[in-house]
Amino acid sequence: MRTVYWTAFWVFLLDQATKWIVVHGMDLVDRMVIDVIPPFLVFRMAWNRGVNFGLLSDFDARWILIGVALAVSAFVLVWVSREGGNRWTYLSAGLLVGGALGNVVDRVLYGAVADFINMSCCGIANPYAFNIADIGVFVGALGLVFFTGRGSGTGRGKTA
């Protein structure tokens, strides 16, 4: 479980540090757009009050989304501690929990999640922005799908 906690800690720290550096340190909050390697990487300020792609942003779901993120994080921690798993399972759980908690802090502090990474390629303009926490949640959830399941764990409660 140490791997889960350390991974979550580093993802959370990286997420919060990059948000502070880009949004406040580079003044993206006022500049709104910073071309880094256009169009492949552009910092574009977006305050996401909803969930992915701005869904549910038309009404104040801040505290509901905070509650859901905390409940999912707690569920994943309990599940992984009971079921066990391999190194990939623990890394995936840590990515998801660290990312979820990073976005929870944003919702508590700002009322919205600070998204700023925008990537486009090959003539396709991506209108959406994301952050390090979003990457952690996505990759962590995907990893839990692929690296958990029948026979993959070393949980205490399993029988052969």
Rank of each mutant, 00 (worst) to 15 (best):
K19Y: 13
D27M: 06
D106V: 06
S120G: 15
K158F: 09
W6S: 10
M1H: 11
V105A: 06
H24K: 14
N126R: 01
T7A: 07
A114G: 10
G111F: 05
G151F: 07
D27T: 10
W88D: 08
D60H: 03
V4G: 04
N48D: 08
F9M: 12
I21Q: 08
A141K: 02
G85R: 00
V68Q: 04
L56Y: 13
N86Y: 08
F12R: 03
T89E: 11
F138Y: 04
A141L: 13
A71L: 15
V113A: 00
R2D: 10
V33Q: 11
C122R: 03
V105W: 06
G111D: 05
L95Q: 08
I66G: 04
I34P: 02
G153P: 02
I34N: 09
S92V: 06
R44G: 09
N131K: 00
M119S: 15
W63G: 11
Y5T: 06
T18M: 15
F130Y: 15
D106Y: 07
S73C: 08
G151S: 03
K19V: 06
S73G: 09
K158Q: 13
G54T: 12
T18G: 05
R107T: 03
V11K: 01
F116H: 04
F59D: 12
L96R: 00
W10H: 07
T3I: 14
L144C: 01
F12S: 00
W47E: 15
V104G: 04
A46E: 12
I66T: 05
I64M: 11
I37E: 06
T7S: 13
W88E: 13
V76T: 09
A129G: 07
N126Q: 05
I124T: 08
L56D: 09
F138V: 14
A93R: 01
A93E: 03
G54Q: 06
D30F: 13
W10G: 04
G151M: 08
L142K: 03
F138H: 04
V76W: 00
G153I: 14
G140Y: 02
D134E: 09
D30E: 14
Y128S: 04
F147I: 10
G155T: 13
